[in-house]
């Protein structure tokens, strides 16, 4: 029983990180109808930003998390304006090729700039853990989890209550009609992309404290993020959050209780992806 609780805790904690990545991806897709294959690379760059701020300025990741988020949001703005915008009207194949190409370029640039060595930020809380009965809870992961929850709630409030949030939702539901409301959809695209890449940057920053950052780290996460986004319904923020949680816990259960589960856990996201695409292509929570 203690073990079972530990397993659920493990899965829950990791799901916060999943949500940070997946929600940005789903938001960008929802508003722009563009699948950002370079999303994992924005995460990677966020990780390196935190890492270098730590190495060069001794800045604690708790502070540089926010800087990474802002830097990546800014970078997202530039990428959106210069690269994504020109292909918005193009076929989705062109868009996929563009973002995919961007992913490869960013990976290689990172490799050239920082080598392919694994790096991580070491702080006292990186591997510190709390003891609750027999259950161990990593302080850093717990922090990331709560940060993710707070951010998701914040994002929910922004989308629900603010004018900008309504604009984003309107554009995602009907871009043409949104323009009739006087909405500048290019501006909406930029905002959505910047929020998405900002969240990815934050996820990368978080990853650099509890795991490792390397040029292809995004690849490890992006497939899961896709599975989550499809699982939760393309473009649905709430769906993505819930799907992150379900995937995180399922992976953890499979990894622990299925014999040889370490290999199977990784397959969970793909299995989910395929099953959902076959049986519920609009996502599991759609009515």
């Amino acid at each position: 029983m203690e073990n079972f609780i530990q397993v659920v805790v493990n899965g829950t904690l990791i799901s916060g990180l999943y949500a940070l990545i997946a929600v940005g991806l789903t938001l960008i897709f929802g508003v722009m109808r563009v699948i950002n294959f370079a999303h994992g690379e924005f995460m990677m760059l966020g990780g390196y930003t935190t890492y270098w701020l730590f190495v060069l300025l001794r800045l604690d990741p708790l502070l540089s998390l926010l800087i990474s988020m802002v830097v990546l949001a800014g970078l997202g703005l530039i990428v959106q304006r210069c690269l994504i915008n020109p292909v918005l009207g193009a076929s989705s194949l062109n868009q996929i090729l563009l973002t995919f190409g961007l992913a490869i370029i960013l990976q290689n640039v990172a490799m050239i700039l920082w080598t392919s060595d694994y790096v991580s930020v070491q702080t006292w809380y990186s591997t510190h853990s709390l003891r609750v009965g027999f259950v161990r809870i990593s302080v850093a992961k717990l922090g990331i989890f709560f940060m993710a929850i707070i951010l998701m709630m914040l994002l929910g409030i922004i989308l629900k209550k603010t004018e900008t949030g309504k604009v984003l939702r309107a554009v995602s539901q009907d871009p043409q009609t949104a323009q009739l409301m006087g909405i500048d959809i290019n501006r909406a695209y930029m905002i959505a992309f910047a929020i998405g890449t900002g969240l990815a940057g934050l996820a990368g920053a978080a990853t650099s404290t509890v795991m490792s950052i390397f040029p292809t780290v995004g690849v490890e996460f992006i497939m899961k993020a896709f599975a989550i986004v499809v699982f939760g319904g393309l473009g649905s923020v709430a769906g993505a959050c819930l799907a992150s949680f379900i995937l995180g816990v399922t992976e953890s259960l499979v990894g622990t209780y299925v014999p040889g589960g370490g290999g199977w856990a990784e397959a969970v996201s793909f299995t989910v992806l395929i099953l959902v695409l076959i049986f519920r292509p609009k996502g599991i929570f759609s009515s």
Binding site: E163, K166, V167, Q173, T177, A178
Partner: peptide, 26 residues
């Protein structure tokens, strides 16, 4: 200049109130 589009094109996942609020976005 306000166009009420063919087929209505309300924002389906938003409430009536939110739709109206967006009508006064400018």
């Amino acid at each position: 200049v306000s166009l009420v589009p063919e087929g209505r094109c309300v924002f389906p996942l938003m409430t009536v109130l939110e739709n109206l609020e967006l009508g006064s976005h400018i």
